[in-house]
C-alpha cells in the first residue's frame, strides 16, 4: 500500500511543485505573490479543453496553443495591470493580482459556467502500465510525473544556462544595477510572468484529468502550491520544488494513516509550523544584505 501511496504522492507532488515553482519565479522577480496564478492556469486549461473538444485540434497543436496563450496571459498581467500601478506598495500589487484572479474567475464562469467538464487527454487513467500486488502505475500517472520533471529541467536550464536566465537573475537581485548594464528590466519582468504562467498552465492541464475541469479547479492546487513554496522557501527555486514533492508525500501519508477528513488541512498546518520555526523556508539561504 505504501508504494501506491508514494505514486499518488509523486503525482500530486508534481502538480504542487509546478504551482510552487510558478509562484516562486514571479515572486523572485518582483516580490509579488501572484494570487491570480491559479486562475491563469485554469483559463489556460480551458483553452486546451476548447481546442480539443470544440475545435477538434490534435493534442500537440492544442498544447502549443495553450503554451502561447499562457505566455501572453502572463505578459498581459504584468504589462497591463502591474506596470500601470502608480507608486505601488506590496499590498497594492497583491490586491491587483487578486483583482485579476476574480476577473478571470468571472470570465470563466460567464463563458463556461460552473459545469464540471471532462478534459480528454490522450493519456488514460484506466490504462495500467505496470502492476504488482501492491501497486499499479497508470499511463496518466507516469505522464504527469514525466512532464512535470521535464518542465522542471527546462526551467532549470533556462535559468542556469541562457542569457535570458542570467538577465532574470540579475533583475531579481538588483534591478537598478541590471539596468545600468543595459538589461531592459521591464521586458525581463514581463517575460518572467509569461514563463511562470506557462509553468502554472502545465500544472492546470495535468491536474484537470485528476479532478474535474471547472472554474474553481485550481483553488486547491494553488493553495497547496503556495504552501509548498512557503515550505521550501519562496526564493529558492530548488527549495519550492522539493517543498512541492514533500507536501505531496506528507499529505497523502497523513490522509491514509491518520485522517482522510483532515488531509487538506495538512498543507495549512505546514504553513503555520514553517512560518513559526523557519520563516524563510527550509531551503532558502538567509542572505543578509550588507549595507
Amino acid at each position: 500500500m505504501l508504494a501506491q501511496l508514494l505514486i499518488t504522492s509523486l503525482v500530486f507532488g508534481s502538480i504542487y511543485a509546478l504551482m510552487a515553482l510558478a509562484m516562486s519565479i514571479t515572486y523572485k522577480a518582483s516580490e509579488i505573490p501572484n494570487f491570480a496564478q491559479g486562475e491563469m492556469a485554469m483559463i489556460s486549461t480551458y483553452v486546451t479543453f476548447v481546442a480539443l473538444s470544440s475545435f477538434g485540434m490534435n493534442f500537440t497543436l492544442a498544447i502549443l496553443l495553450t503554451v502561447a496563450f499562457a505566455f501572453v496571459l502572463g505578459i498581459l498581467l504584468e504589462f497591463a495591470f502591474l506596470r500601470r500601478a502608480k507608486d505601488p506598495t506590496p499590498l497594492s500589487y497583491i490586491v491587483i493580482t487578486i483583482g485579476f484572479q476574480l476577473m478571470l474567475y468571472g470570465l470563466a464562469g460567464w463563458k463556461w459556467g460552473s459545469d464540471q467538464r471532462q478534459i480528454n487527454l490522450p493519456f488514460s487513467e484506466s490504462k495500467v502500465l505496470y502492476q504488482t500486488d501492491s501497486f499499479a502505475i497508470t499511463e496518466l500517472n507516469l505522464v504527469t510525473i514525466l512532464i512535470a520533471v521535464i518542465v522542471l529541467i527546462l526551467i532549470y536550464l533556462l535559468i542556469q544556462k541562457t542569457k535570458l536566465g542570467l538577465a532574470m537573475k540579475a533583475c531579481q537581485q538588483n534591478v537598478n544595477a541590471a539596468r545600468m548594464n543595459g538589461i531592459p528590466s521591464d521586458r525581463i519582468l514581463a517575460i518572467s510572468f509569461g514563463i511562470s504562467s506557462i509553468v502554472g498552465a502545465t500544472a492546470g492541464v495535468l491536474v484537470a484529468p485528476l479532478i474535474t475541469l471547472d472554474p474553481t479547479m485550481m483553488w486547491d492546487p494553488l493553495l497547496k502550491g503556495f504552501a509548498a513554496a512557503v515550505l521550501g522557501g519562496m526564493k529558492s527555486l530548488y527549495g519550492v520544488v522539493i517543498g512541492g514533492f514533500l507536501l505531496g508525500i506528507v499529505e497523502n501519508l497523513f490522509g491514509f494513516y491518520i485522517s482522510i477528513e483532515f488531509k487538506s488541512v495538512v498543507a495549512f498546518l505546514i504553513i503555520v509550523i514553517v512560518l513559526y520555526f523557519r520563516p524563510s523556508g527550509l531551503f532558502d539561504k538567509h542572505y543578509v544584505r550588507k549595507v
Binding site: A167, K169, Q173, N174, Y287
Partner: peptide, 18 residues
C-alpha cells in the same frame, strides 16, 4: 552594486549583456 548571488564570471557576463 554587484550582483551578490551571482558568481564573478556571471557578473561580468551581465556586463556584456548588450
Amino acid at each position: 552594486e554587484v550582483f551578490d548571488e551571482l558568481t564573478v564570471k556571471e557578473n561580468l557576463l551581465v556586463g556584456a549583456y548588450l
